[in-house]
Nucleic acid binder design. Structure first.
Lengths: 201, 201
DNA sequence: GCGATAAGTTACTGACCGGTAACACCCCTG
DNA sequence: CAGGGGTGTTACCGGTCAGTAACTTATCGC
């Protein structure tokens, strides 16, 4: 099995954060970049400028480390969402467009690997994995946020529009990994806007 | 790392196909069910009712076995497509609907894990992996088939409709893995039909 | 029966996996 | 100064990984 060898970009050696933070930041980067099963705990610890013992003093197992990474990814997206609603306060329609535009730019980045939580769900099919419930809860919340926003923006059928937009962007993010950023994903903003417009009262 | 233990469903011990066929069928099943990195070559060989030596007499490496599995997956989908066009010969619009309906039923199956090639693309980010070009070529061909079909069905902008449908179904298939078959994916047929209708001259 | 070819069997290599034990260290607080 | 908690270091455990060597066995065409 070929395995990528450049696991040592010394990511997030940032100044001197406490080891736990460094480990988490490094793990998120490596898991996202190379896949979860492709990266061993030793590689994570080393890239974080520490060692396996310290890692296991903060996380009871690799699975738990993965779950915590997912929690951070989810939190990051939540904060990102809050930013949007602050920048366009009181204008849900503008929030929708801004969100769509952000998705468009991330999909256009060739280095982008899509949604970390979706990737983890694909890579970890085991129902008992501690990361799975994090992923599911996050995705449910994300869809509900979207529906709420569609409602506030004045959609005729907010739930339907939310589902449409949700599938559209999930498709775009995963599609950019097989067909690249110049494939169908490149038109995600245009498509989303048409969808939104068609639902306005 | 938790690892699923039921890798021995003795799949495709079917009668007595030649070992190569048994290995491929078993590998496809196990890789799809549990993920590629999660399944070792020994487990594949054993579940196929043979052994590692025989496997390596037919495939030069695990990566090559994976690539061949992807080729078979792609071929399967191609054949499936040809069936549709035979069943609804001369009626491209009906082919579109039938294809959409098939996607809908596969997404509704809780055991479904989405598109094997997309999953592999997510799990194997390394550009040099022999499976990647198979995946990319297949996805390009699939999108082009779709565009051709949209054109034949009389779409105003066949390429746009094809991209929309493509993202929609990629989104649905991946979404059913995190939000389950009762999530947004459950409405993929309805959404697709609306999209198609809106593009008709 | 003969030889050739394919398949099964066992044992092995070297590397890596997740996870742990034991111990030295450093720095901060009291 | 004493002490203790967080950290680093090294070595190790049992298990699994991908991949190989050498040998035996079964099958099939001639």
């Amino acid at each position: 099995m070929s395995t990528s060898s450049d696991l040592s970009p010394a990511c997030a050696e940032a100044a001197k954060l406490p080891p736990r933070e460094r480990i988490l930041a490094t793990a998120r980067e490596l898991f996202y970049r190379h896949g979860i099963r492709a990266v061993g705990v030793e590689a994570v610890a080393e890239a974080a400028g520490t060692n396996k013992m310290t890692l296991y003093r903060h996380f009871s197992s690799k699975d738990e480390l993965v779950a915590e990474c997912m929690r951070q990814f989810a939190g990051e997206v939540d904060g990102w969402w809050e930013n949007l609603s602050r920048e366009h306060a009181g204008n849900p329609r503008a929030q929708l467009s801004a969100w769509l535009r952000d998705v468009g730019t991330s999909v256009a980045d060739p280095a982008d690997r899509g949604c970390a939580l979706v990737n983890a769900a694909v890579e970890l099919p085991e129902k008992e994995h501690p990361a799975r419930c994090v992923i599911e809860q996050f995705k449910i919340a994300q869809r509900n946020n979207l529906a709420q926003l569609c409602e506030a923006a004045g959609a005729k059928d907010a739930n339907l529009l939310a589902d449409e937009l949700f599938l559209l962007i999930e498709g775009a993010r995963v599609c950019s990994q097989s067909l690249g950023p110049k494939g169908p994903s490149s038109r995600v903003v245009q498509m989303g806007e048409v969808l939104i417009a068609s639902h306005m009262k």
